[in-house]
Each structure stands twice: as structure tokens, then as C-alpha cells.
Design a protein around this nucleic acid. Structure first.
Ligand code: SF4
Ligand code: SF4
Lengths: 145, 145
DNA sequence: AAGATTTAAGAGTATTTAGTCGCAAAAGAA
DNA sequence: TTCTTTTGCGACTAAATACTCTTAAATCTT
């Protein structure tokens, strides 16, 4: 049950890492993040650019530059990230790949799939980067293999 | 939230179609299925071969040959299909792509993701091809765009 | 036995996703 | 001004996924 692309996975891991460093002020260096989380620097940079473009991050070039969350971490939710990195229709996809999920005649798995999506979406809606960041720092959950 | 590959999607659609034709006896022609469901013949054939190899289907060559379910449709569940076509670890994947889901230190989304997977798995466990096939024939739900 | 039908199998191609590289642009430091 | 640091951006390469095509093997029909 792989639901997220690598770009989204890396972006999320990096954002949670960022949120877990809430004490540190200023910008966080992308090179450092990519090293700590063992993610390709250039690949991560591209994802960050997308997030910057969409108002999740703020970036700054030059010495001591880097990225920072543009809003408080408790105001950024998984749904926001996923809609940006996977597309606005992320939660509107048919399990059987049929077009126009929900709008036209439903496919035979409709009955349970619409509920499953709804419940996952709800979790994504209420889970903030702040919450995940705290879990990482408090309960030493891992972000890296 | 795309969770299934095209091979699995086509395979499932075809199996449900097959189950919906429970009145028809003998083997069902792959060419007919691919035409009715608008799926590439050769692509579908390969998926069917995998399913035959794993005891879901029975195939027969020559005139009036084709495929048929090897077991009654109410004894084949979505979990069976998905484990064959997507891999036995289908329900053991980390949302953040970390290895060893559940066995080692969990990732920060563990709390809700393990429940989400469990509940989807439960639905896959109890949903049979017979059930889906009946929905297609009785309630004219669609299997094709 | 010869020919037609239909699945099996494997090679080949195209598209998407993932990852890499090089250089331009912004900003600070010397 | 010149050099260094660091993000922005586009081109390039690699790998995985999604098809497509050709030929072989099994089976029936005549
Ligand atoms: S059925 Fe469920 S999955 Fe298929 S189209 Fe309707 S909502 Fe989407
Ligand atoms: S956390 Fe959830 S998703 Fe991540 S490894 Fe543990 S169970 Fe898997």
C-alpha cells in the first residue's frame, strides 16, 4: 500500500525534521537536512522549491541562508503538503482507476473505498507538522533508516 | 491516493467482470474481456497468466478456450488478488517509505497509519469477487469508463 | 494431417518517476 | 569589486511502470 511518491515522502520527512527543530531560529541549510536525512540534495531542493512556491516554505540564498516554515508548524497539515506535491485530486481517485470518482455511476468498491479515503483524509486534515515534529524529538521516533 | 498499479487494476476489473458472468459456463475468452472492458489484450493476458500460476484462474487453450475462476467467486477475496499482483508485503509498507514497517522504531505517522492500513486490509479481507460481481450485474455499477 | 483458434512467453518500445549534474542568480564577506 | 556560500532552474540520465508485438505451444475442427 504505497500511496505517496518519493518526492512527497522526502518532502514530508524533511518538513517534519524542520518542525522538530523548532528551537533553532533563522534558516535551515538544505545541505544539512539532506545529509542528516540521507536524501539526495538536488532532489530535495526541487521539492522544496515547489513548497516555497506554494507558500509552505520561505527560502533565503547566500551564507546562513536556507529554508524555514512560512507559517507556524501547528498551522500546516499533511493535507496541505499532499495536495501540493501529489495534486489537488489526491483524495478523489477511484480504487479501480475509473475516471470521475464519485460524480458518475460508482464502481463496485465504492461502498468501502469512499469511507476509507474519507477517514485517511480526516487524519491528514488534523495532523500538523508540529505534532509530528514533537513525536520525533520527544519519543525518538525515526525519520531515517 | 492511488494505491494499485495498472496491472492490478485491470486484473481486478477483469476478475469482477468474470464473477458477474456467473451464469455462463465454461471458459471466457480473453479477447472478449479485453474488448468489453477496453483493456489491452496482451497486457491483460500477462496479468491473467500470473493469476493462473497462483491458482486463482484456470486457463484453457484452443477454440472455445479462455479462462475461468478456479474457485467459487465467494471464496476469492481482494486480499488474495492484491497479494499476488502487488506483493505479499502490500499491507506492510510505511507511509513515509521507511524500511521494516512496524518491526523497528516506528515513524511519526505510525499511530494512525497502522490503523488505516488495518481497516483497509479488513475490507479487502472480507470483500469477495462474488460480492463485487453481483453489484455489477444487479445495480449496474460500472467497470469501464 | 492441415488449418484455425486461443493462451503462453519473451522481447521490444514508450511513458512516467526518480535521481544527477552543471550553471545561473542572490546574498553576504573580505 | 571579487570571492564564497547557498538556493533556483533547466537539462540530462537511470530505473520502474506501462504498454505493444512476435512467435511458440496447446487444442479443436475439418
Ligand atoms: S467508486 Fe469509490 S472509487 Fe470507484 S469511483 Fe466511486 S468513489 Fe471512486
Ligand atoms: S510507522 Fe506506521 S508506517 Fe511508518 S513504519 Fe511503523 S507502521 Fe509503518
Amino acid at each position: 500500500m504505497k500511496v505517496l511518491s518519493k518526492a512527497t515522502i522526502y518532502g514530508l520527512r524533511a518538513l517534519v525534521y524542520l518542525a522538530s527543530k523548532k528551537d533553532r531560529t533563522g534558516y535551515l541549510n538544505i545541505g544539512e537536512i539532506s545529509e542528516k536525512l540521507n536524501i539526495s540534495f538536488h532532489f530535495l531542493t526541487k521539492t522544496f522549491q515547489t513548497l516555497t512556491l506554494h507558500g509552505i516554505l520561505e527560502s533565503y540564498r547566500g551564507p546562513n541562508g536556507g529554508i524555514a516554515l512560512k507559517k507556524p508548524a501547528d498551522q500546516i497539515f499533511l493535507t496541505d503538503i499532499v495536495h501540493i506535491l501529489e495534486g489537488a485530486d489526491f483524495f478523489d481517485k477511484c480504487l479501480l482507476g475509473l475516471p470521475g470518482c464519485g460524480v458518475e455511476a460508482p464502481c463496485p468498491v465504492h461502498d468501502f473505498w469512499k469511507d476509507a479515503k474519507k477517514s485517511v483524509k480526516h487524519e491528514f486534515d488534523i495532523t500538523s507538522l508540529a505534532e509530528l515534529g514533537e513525536k520525533v524529538s520527544d519519543e525518538r521516533m525515526r525519520l531515517v533508516s
